[in-house]
Design a binder for these strands. Sequence first.
DNA 1: AGAGAAATGTCAGCTACATTGCAGTTCCTA
DNA 2: TAGGAACTGCAATGTAGCTGACATTTCTCT
Lengths: 225, 225
Amino acid sequence: MYEDLKYWYLRDHKLFRTLSFGQIKQLCIIMGFKKAQKGEIIYFSASDVPRIFLLKKGNIKIVAVDEDGNETIKDIIQKGDLFGELTLEVDSQANEYAKVLSDDVAICSFLLSDFEDVLLKNPSLALSYTKFVGLKMKRIKNSYSNLISKDSKTRLSLFLKAWGETEGIRTENKIVIENYLTQNDIAQIICTSRQTATQLLNEMVANGIIGYNRKEIIINDVCSF
Amino acid sequence: MYEDLKYWYLRDHKLFRTLSFGQIKQLCIIMGFKKAQKGEIIYFSASDVPRIFLLKKGNIKIVAVDEDGNETIKDIIQKGDLFGELTLEVDSQANEYAKVLSDDVAICSFLLSDFEDVLLKNPSLALSYTKFVGLKMKRIKNSYSNLISKDSKTRLSLFLKAWGETEGIRTENKIVIENYLTQNDIAQIICTSRQTATQLLNEMVANGIIGYNRKEIIINDVCSF
DNA sequence: AGAGAAATGTCAGCTACATTGCAGTTCCTA
DNA sequence: TAGGAACTGCAATGTAGCTGACATTTCTCT
């Protein structure tokens, strides 16, 4: 792939916008590229060398497998998000992989060690990156406290609202979301059983709050949400 | 207070160990100092200028108040821990304060803006700091997944185990922990009601797994824990 | 087109835990 | 050293949401 294209892939990301042309060049040299199809599984933890990934196109979910073999969704990664060893520290215990949700995805990556070098040479990038990790932490803390204090119905509403804000397309008073998640996925994200999620979704449809099918979710009244 | 003493307060912390004498000097100049007694409340979010704090002595809990006035424990800070605007970003919504748990505490602090300057001049510190924030994030993620998958009994066990490991004094096959938390505090930390926590603790005492009173908690059999 | 695999819908029964309410203890402080 | 506040202990009752079992619909792949 052309250096120029790589350049723009990084340049797009707000994290790297502070960098000069030369600095981005440096990152580009160490950047890898990959495409994958729906359903494909990308192993990244403990697989080979630690990397940081940038999702250029599509959606993936990060799934963790515990000792009993149960799968839990850790994160949903959208276009433009970073994932992988974001903490700059490998943890050997974490048994995680990424599964492609959308039809096809494009992923860039660089080695953790290379990225560290760049950070050392660019203190302002290092600072932005720290804030970026901090932001991630705040998001996690937030969903954590939702989990404690809100019931499953509220959690579903909050999730749909957040999803609509990041990815939904707004028309008039409605938000249309491309639905690449199954009800089981949604259930795992809001930490409830599949059955409960199904029930709550149907309830919301019956109440006219949302429209739902396998392709898209429509939030009807944005204001009341 | 003497510059020398300040120097050692920072020098003790592993985060700052990579810094040269001169660099630590720089941080010392901007460092404030404070003492407080049991029960005292230290406001830090939204109070005045954003700061980062270092707890030198004692224990505090970070408490958040939501819109309904309910208090929830966000974190327990132990000697040597950092707290405050760790993400280097002020969030105005967060309504948090710190309450002193131990008899007395000593707290150092520096302004967020000053700390950013130091980070910009010391890329390797910036890198360590990012890893430090990342570690915090991992801990949060971990308790998050405990909350989902484990029942309250297991959560209590895990909490006591972790507490014993960080602060307990090991003698023979037992671990003695200085108990500065009420049952209500413990309940909030493991996200359950006070009654359930009481019940579980008494159950564990009855089974001989732990010894419990208001002053100390003793974990009897380290191995089986 | 048709079989098999996912995904979705529905229901009864159960369980862990919250809630409420009160009584007994320990601690603080005036 | 008494009296109130905070903490701890116990029991009865209520319920959100999980489990499991099954039917139905929709997708996917020869």
